[in-house]
């Protein structure tokens, strides 16, 4: 009995020793020399591995940043300027400051604004729905409401509002990684400048149909009338294919367009004072 025990322990211990020696030599033989700065950069990264920078993950970003001649093509949207400054310090590069951005849902086709015209009965993803047809409203451009963007968000910043059937962005949580922008088959979500104290103005519509058709499909649609462009003093608004677009780099947040828009398609967010005292919901 005792001999068996000793033998067992002995063989196992010997085996362990032998294998560790083998492993040691293999590790030595196949050791990959890596730039130690990759580890350093990776340490200051947020570690979300979201892919928002365009690389497969934080390590891939670090690896590429170390090898790159400058940081022009490397920016971590999640960490923003603070992280990029650290990265630049490690690598000895310059980094241009970027304004913080946020995901903006450019569709206001809520159940109330945009009546449903049919019932969708397929797999509940926007991707599959978009491949099949224009959607369950008369607007072939608007939000399909299956929440692919919500599923794509790693930071819990998106949620579907059951009342409107539209996704809602939580500004506090949104890191502007762009995963939702990629996930949306209708290209409704856009990354826009967050603006001073979160104040921003945007066209909440992507409908390119003629005004009559767009208006018939959705009461909050941009009808491409061009009133906003006319009233804008900063040439920030362009109207193309029956659709207005506000360039956030030119917009001075004067909100003249908001007052002018006949369908309420232009939204202003986070302004301290409501534009018109009567319409308090505009201040949302």
């Amino acid at each position: 009995m005792t001999t068996t025990l000793i033998w067992t322990i002995g063989i196992l211990a010997g085996l362990g020793l032998l294998l560790s020696v083998i492993l040691f030599f293999i590790a030595k033989q196949f050791k990959v020399e890596e730039d130690p700065r990759i580890d350093e950069v990776e340490k200051v990264m947020p570690g979300a591995n979201c892919g928002g920078c365009g690389f497969a993950g934080c390590r891939a970003f670090a690896d590429s940043a170390v090898k790159a001649p400058n940081l022009d093509n490397h920016y971590c949207p999640v960490g923003g300027d603070p992280v990029m400054k650290q990265v630049a310090a490690i690598l000895g590069y310059e980094v241009k400051a970027k304004a913080p951005m946020v995901a903006v849902v450019r569709c206001n086709g809520s159940c109330a604004n945009r009546p449903r015209t049919n019932i969708y009965d397929g797999a509940q993803t926007c991707k599959i729905k978009a491949a099949l047809y224009a959607g369950d409203t008369a607007c072939p451009f608007g939000c399909l409401g299956c929440g692919d963007c919500v599923a794509a968000c790693q930071f819990g910043a998106l949620s579907m509002d059951p009342k409107t059937g539209l996704p809602v962005v939580d500004e506090q949580k949104c890191t502007a990684c762009g995963a939702c922008v990629k996930a949306c088959p209708k290209s409704i979500i856009e990354l826009r400048n967050k603006g001073p104290r979160g104040m921003r103005v945007f066209v909440s519509c992507v409908n390119k149909d003629k005004g009559v058709v767009a208006r018939k499909a959705c009461s909050a649609a941009c009808i491409g009338c061009g009133k906003c462009a006319k009233v804008c003093a900063h040439e920030a608004i362009t109207v193309e294919n029956n659709l207005a677009y506000i360039d956030f780099n030119k917009c001075k947040l004067c909100r003249k367009c908001v007052a002018e828009c006949p369908t309420g398609a232009i939204h202003d967010i986070n302004f301290p004072k409501p534009l018109m005292p009567k319409k308090e919901e505009n201040n949302g």
């Binding site: 099949l132 047809y133 224009a134 959607g135 008369a138 072939p140 149909d209």
Partner: peptide
Amino acid sequence: RKDIAGNN
């Protein structure tokens, strides 16, 4: 004009 899938 919109086809059977509602696309232009």
